[in-house]
Simulated assay, not measured.
Amino acid sequence: MKIYALVGPSGTGKSYKALELAYENEIEYIIDDGLLIHKNKIIAGISAKQAKTVIEAVKRAIFNDINHKESVKLKIQEEKIDKVLILGTSNKMINQIIEKLEIKELYKIINIKDISSNREISIAKESRKRGNHIIPVPTIEIKPIASGLSINSLKRFFKRNNNTCKLIEKTIIRPTFSYIGKFFINSNVIEQIISYETSKFKKIDKINKIEVTNLNNSIKIFLNININDITQIKESFEIQKKIKENVEKTTLINVEKVDIYINRLKRDYMSKS
Rank of each mutant, 00 (worst) to 15 (best):
I221C: 00
F184K: 13
K209Q: 11
N228Y: 12
N186V: 01
E191V: 07
N186W: 01
N188C: 01
Y196M: 05
K206E: 12
S236N: 15
K202E: 12
I230W: 04
K234A: 09
E197F: 04
S199V: 04
I230E: 11
L223N: 10
S187P: 08
N208S: 03
N214T: 02
K202C: 05
I190K: 02
E197A: 03
I190N: 00
E238D: 13
K209G: 06
N217D: 12
N228I: 15
S195V: 00
Q232L: 14
I221K: 01
S199F: 08
I227V: 14
N217Q: 08
N188V: 00
I233F: 15
K209A: 07
Q232V: 13
Q192L: 05
N216F: 12
T231K: 13
D229N: 15
Q232W: 07
S236E: 15
S236D: 10
D205G: 03
E235A: 14
N208W: 02
F237C: 06
L223A: 14
K209C: 02
I193Q: 04
K202R: 09
K200W: 00
D229S: 14
E235Y: 14
K234Y: 13
I219E: 10
K234D: 09
L215N: 10
F237S: 14
I225K: 10
Q232E: 15
N226V: 05
S195M: 11
I227W: 03
I193Y: 00
S199N: 13
T231P: 02
E211M: 07
E211D: 05
N226C: 10
N226Q: 09
S187R: 05
L215D: 08
K202F: 06
I210Y: 09
T213A: 04
F201K: 04
I207K: 01
N188W: 03
S236M: 15
K234V: 01
T231H: 10
I225Q: 11
T213I: 13
V189D: 02
V189F: 08
E197H: 05
I190A: 08
I219N: 12
I207G: 02
E238V: 14
F183R: 08
N224Q: 12
K209S: 11
F201H: 07
E235S: 15
I190E: 03
I193A: 04
E211R: 08
L223I: 15
D229Y: 11
K206L: 10
F184S: 12
F184C: 01
Y196Q: 06
N216C: 04
Q232I: 11
E191A: 13
I185T: 01
I225D: 04
E197C: 06
I193T: 01
F222P: 03
K209D: 11
F184T: 12
L223F: 08
I190T: 05
N224Y: 15
